[in-house]
């Protein structure tokens, strides 16, 4: 008897919801980036879980999750670079004050 698929999906769903709540409510840009990473991780758990328990279970889900991890690393690098250059110009990391395009 193994742990069923629904348990993994539930853990991933809870992680995704926590990440979504953090990305919507936090004002610190670094924490917003971290919440996005949490959401990406939840998706990766789903991919790997379906790779084992899906209708056509094979290794493709694991390979897809590897690509998604690479994408997340690139996203974090570019996001932090934007954050640092923004901080250099505006002296803030607060997402509420990043409204140059709105004014």
């Amino acid at each position: 008897m193994t742990v069923p698929l629904a348990s993994y999906l539930l853990v991933a769903l809870i992680l995704f919801c926590i990440g979504l709540y953090g990305a919507l409510t936090k004002r610190n840009a670094v924490i917003v980036l971290l919440s996005m990473e949490l959401m990406l991780n939840a998706v990766n758990i789903n991919l790997v879980a379906f790779a084992k328990f899906g209708a056509f279970a094979n290794l493709t889900g694991q390979i897809f999750s590897l690509f998604s991890i690479t994408l997340a690393a690139a996203e974090v690098a570019v996001g932090l670079a934007i954050l640092i250059s923004l901080y250099r110009n505006r002296r803030t990391v607060n997402v509420d004050e990043m409204d140059l395009l709105k004014r």
């Binding site: 670094v30 980036l33 991780n41 991890i69 690479t70 997340a72 932090l80 954050l83 640092i84 002296r91």
Partner: peptide
């Protein structure tokens, strides 16, 4: 990637900005 580089990168991002 995650526990190693992304966490350290985030720490760098925090140290280089003021909170």
């Amino acid at each position: 990637v995650y526990a190693g580089s992304i966490s350290i990168l985030m720490l760098f991002g925090i140290m280089l900005t003021r909170h």
